[in-house]
Design a protein around this nucleic acid. Sequence first.
DNA 1: ATTAGCACTCCTCATTAGTGAGTGCTAGCA
DNA 2: TGCTAGCACTCACTAATGAGGAGTGCTAAT
Lengths: 348, 348
Amino acid sequence: MADIELDERKVKILNAIIKNYLETGEPVGSRTISKYTDLNLSSATIRNEMSDLEELGYIVQPHTSAGRIPSDKGYRFYVNNLIAAKDKEVSDMQEWMIEKTEKMESLLKNVAKMLATNTQYATLVSAPSVVSNKVKFVQLSAVDEHQVLSVVVMDGNIVKNKIIQVEKPLDNETMLKLNMLLNTNLNGLTVDQINLAVISRLKEQAGIHDEIISQVLDTVAETITEDDDLQVYTSGATNIFKYPELADSKKASELLTTFEEKQSLVELLTDNGKTDETGIQVYIGEETPIATMKDCSIVTATYELGDGVKGTIGIVGPKRMDYENVVNNIKSLKGQLDKILKDEDSKT
Amino acid sequence: MADIELDERKVKILNAIIKNYLETGEPVGSRTISKYTDLNLSSATIRNEMSDLEELGYIVQPHTSAGRIPSDKGYRFYVNNLIAAKDKEVSDMQEWMIEKTEKMESLLKNVAKMLATNTQYATLVSAPSVVSNKVKFVQLSAVDEHQVLSVVVMDGNIVKNKIIQVEKPLDNETMLKLNMLLNTNLNGLTVDQINLAVISRLKEQAGIHDEIISQVLDTVAETITEDDDLQVYTSGATNIFKYPELADSKKASELLTTFEEKQSLVELLTDNGKTDETGIQVYIGEETPIATMKDCSIVTATYELGDGVKGTIGIVGPKRMDYENVVNNIKSLKGQLDKILKDEDSKT
DNA sequence: ATTAGCACTCCTCATTAGTGAGTGCTAGCA
DNA sequence: TGCTAGCACTCACTAATGAGGAGTGCTAAT
């Protein structure tokens, strides 16, 4: 791609500038590079090269007579061409942690937390979307005379429940019949297959005349289809204070509010098909779909739990984030999630 | 109490200073008071009185030749003596919202959110502690050959569940027997009554020799006793950016981290018995039990769900928070929570 | 007891000058 | 032709200075 316009030396210099800037966060000057790199060149030569790089749009001067910092294009080049994809295992901690947890919810919370601790950036994890998930098991039980408990187990062992208030108790026989009915009719269906038609067919079979049964069936349907209000888990949002370029009151406030509200984060996590073959996606600066994150970079990965049921992991940090570390971390984690969730699924 | 050392005029002036400071956040000078109040006094007179008030510790000068701001003692006096406890109803929105939600979790989330929107401060709500909550209903069901679902309903309709992996399927009869056994033995017990002794008695009755049954019973016990990792819901944490005295990078970072980690918030929410007859507790500045909140004030209230099962609502804001509004808000909310939770409970 | 007046304090803000990091350019060198 | 040394220039950052103003404390007069 950009190989035509950049000779080897320019690439080396650009790389050096970015590496240095990632560490310090300060504009980097020609003298620094002249000493930092192994190509023995004077600062003057570097200056000429830097001038070229600036003209080509890879670096930028915050003001005349300051050093240079990478532009979005520069970062992009770095991410595309310069990251050594070392597949080294990222800490055993991860595996251990994942082994231990069994509930989806706490698993994802832990994933977010661990990733935040590991990277020192803000992280977000979305739960696998349930829309195309299948019903595995349904059960109604009489808790007491006026309350019926409806429990649904989905593929991937996601358990949902709801308590139904009923006017008068359901007798045992009806209960049994309903359970049979529900399981034979709903098992194997996905959430979006359970629509009004299915429900009314159920009601017919159960004896549509009974008001209570009708109500119960409605609630079961609700239990299943109820969207668990967009499950996004975040962690380490306050890490942004570690990066001066994001820590000023105004920016931090906006960013943290975005994180707190979670709503808009969904946009980020819904797979837009632009992920590359590794399933990992990097947004730099202006590329991000969320306005309040214009000064950030975001790395996301989608993980799968079989059958196209997908969730997403994301990391948000300053543009000068340690892309190498982050990408490796997220890649390793994605792999493990893919694995564990499929395993758990196949255990059934 | 302080009635001896403060004559009526001083009280009026102190009140005026605090009111004014609550609004502006700026130190308030003698001239301002001289015009603001109805007691026609010149600024010089006010100055003398303020000098006295300062000596008595109710107000403080941030630096020589600045106006005065209330000290913690001043705020305390204000809260104790000067707040008009108008019991006016706080927005119908509240009731409406509470009616609508049925799940404890989303109910509390909404409470936190609404309170944050209403007051523009940060809020936290802890779920009712489950320790002394009673088991109402237990059920095991075979999801498939290798998985058994354990569901427990507690008083207040809190539902817990867990999936148990079993080596080989349990036959219907055993299942039925176990369910009978569990319900007759556990119903009505509180969480902390369910200890090892109870469990082993259960095992004995069920036929201790069976490894699988033993495992299943252990997991049921786990399901019940498992602490739902300290359920604290927060909202509006980013509101602190609205108050310059808290918004600087360092303080905001500390505060928000405290909120994000939630762990330490528990300290705040565990009832320490110091609440007054209304169940409402106000911490001002140094009085707060959490170090990072030394520059804040906190108002908490405990709500009950019968039988001494308690949860807490809290508001965190700057010391110059609108105590009157906050106290009223929280009082009204507490009342409604008390009511609704008891109602729901008595519906059983 | 209250008030007017005045000197004083000290924060705030804008201006100024000094410093240094870093650049662009030019001329000289291999 | 490519590299380098040198120099003038730019501009953010810092500290010092001073004017302005809000507010106080004290004193003397009412």
